[in-house]
Design a binder for these strands. Structure first.
Lengths: 316, 316
DNA sequence: GGATGTCTGTTCATTATTGAACAGCATATG
DNA sequence: CATATGCTGTTCAATAATGAACAGACATCC
């Protein structure tokens, strides 16, 4: 039944794909977590066994030859099947052990995830959590993570979303900044103030802070990490839109409009449908859901005590 | 970008598939040309890495668990992509070296293929021919062979057929058998004679020899190998339908009806479309086509000299 | 120009994988 | 009942794959 005198290794396809995608042996090696030597050798072997040259050296890195292009589609098909297979197997794993890859924003990681999984690991010491922070929504669909906690609901049909609750955010700045520049008037926009925004949008994609126009505002700092944004606000850089649970916990910033209710966004827990039934996924998902529900008020309104204190301060 | 702390080996899927299909470690090992120990180890590793038990021991061999069934489809998809990939690569191989897997019937192998490839290998010593004999038509579509020479045109769309020419066959028996039982009359069927047929059909699928009904005939021997059929006829077992080039070359058998023209069947050369452009496939295919054309008369009518001699003999 | 970083190719010691040989077990076969 | 056959599991020596370290090439930055 064996088809070839010298049967080739399916695994080599992973090496070929990595080099074809990254364009260099070294970056492919990093991606695959092996030495670059190994990558080169495996590619050479694959080419020898298939009897075709797949990659050619160019001034800047490797590029696929025509033959390489011709098989790329089948290689991708193998990869896709392999990923499916892996996920389906993980979904049938009834043990509460192994690795769960989790992705969420920095702020929610601090407030919600880290305490939840610390407690969880008391009960399940064999469970390991890989936490990847960032704002990319693509991660789950590309299977770079098992669970995502997101403030936007993804539309992809194979992803299952569970509503966690609402997260409130408000505008924050340092006391000194507000004293120096004054407090913007609600409903008049943030023109002539300094704002701290996310990098992705040059103010075009996110032109509003709590409904206030950023028209005419100076962008002081752009950073995708909300904790760094908060740090920037605390250092008197300007006004940032922060989650209330975050801003209220930091003594160096206060709400710009203490009496204004927070702007609410819904938080979703996102899982690939194949992983829904996995025991360890369920355990982690429900630990996060529980943690969210325990902190429902804080996540929505921030820390009430701090808020009234800040309001009192601001009024003086 | 690496998805798992301990990345699994795609190659292990081949081991799993082999065991799932054969039901035992040893036969899977033979199929994969490795030791049975390796198969067991790889399966164990795969199960450990996926965190799922894929195979369970039963009184007679291994059988797939529910989890194993769940991933079988993805495994097959990987295999299919791998085979496609292999074939496409082979189709782009411009060297005239390596292995060409050829399948045909025993008779045509003797008469046509062996001389053709012997001559071919003078010109291309690096070319190796794997010759698989048998009547199965499925081989090419399942990619167990690169080239097939068949007397029936397969309907599968991805296979490319080239008409080689016509092969004539006739009924043969030993002189002693005909002397003892008499010569059947043309048009009256083979009732009350002994016939040598193929195994596949219990006379139901092939109820005719040169248009003669086998109704009432005794089946003396069934064998899929035409050379063995001829041997049986030579040993006075009964009447066989043989290719003329074969029967005419054997002194111990004669045509039952020497003056009857042979029954003609078209011979096809079958190649997978992906392999059409491969240099070595083209070389072998044209060598076979040439050999066929050189022997056109012989393949159609057998050996004329022998035939008239036999006819003379039969008439005495 | 010199320094720095990234990339590839080579060498060699380390490590992981492999299969031959053997033993145990079950099932046919005489 | 003895024998033969086929399968699995274990051990260990031989083999194959791997990566750290180094060297050379190329580009970029100061």
């Amino acid at each position: 039944m064996n088809r070839h005198p010298a049967t080739w290794q399916w695994d080599d396809v992973r090496f070929f794909l990595a080099v074809a995608r990254t364009g260099s042996l070294s970056s492919a090696a990093r991606m695959l977590r092996v030495g670059h030597v190994t990558v080169g050798r495996r590619i050479a072997l694959l080419e020898k066994r298939l009897g075709v040259v797949l990659l050619s050296r160019t001034p800047d890195g490797f590029s696929t030859t025509l033959a390489g292009q011709a098989i790329l589609q089948q290689c991708a098909a193998m990869e896709s099947a392999a990923l499916d297979l892996e996920r389906i197997a993980a979904g049938r794993d009834s043990r509460v052990s192994g690795t769960v890859r989790l992705t969420t924003t920095e702020a929610l990681a601090h407030q919600l995830v880290v305490p939840a999984i610390s407690a969880l690991r008391q009960a399940h010491p064999e469970l390991q959590i890989d936490l990847t922070l960032g704002v990319r929504v693509l991660d789950i669909a590309r299977r770079d993570a098992d669970i995502a906690i997101r403030l936007a609901r993804p539309a992809t049909p194979e992803l299952v979303c569970r509503k966690l609750g609402e997260v409130g955010s408000s505008l924050y700045a340092s006391r000194r900044y507000l004293a120096k520049h004054g407090t913007p008037r609600r409903g008049q926009g943030l023109g002539d103030f300094d704002v701290i925004t996310y990098t992705g949008a040059p103010a075009a994609a996110r032109p509003f802070f709590m409904g206030e126009s950023l028209e005419g505002a100076r962008v002081a700092t752009r950073c995708d990490n909300p904790l760094v944004q908060m740090r920037a606000a605390a250092d008197h850089s300007g006004i940032a839109e922060l989650a209330c649970f975050l801003g209220d916990a930091e003594p160096d910033v206060v709400r710009v409009w203490p009496d204004e209710p927070p702007a609410l966004r819904t938080a979703w827990l996102v899982v690939h449908q194949d992983l829904r039934r996995s025991a360890r996924i369920k355990v982690v998902a429900s630990a996060i859901t529980d943690a969210f529900h325990r902190q429902l008020a804080t996540l929505r309104n921030g820390h009430a005590v701090k808020r009234s204190a800040a309001a009192a301060l601001a009024r003086t």
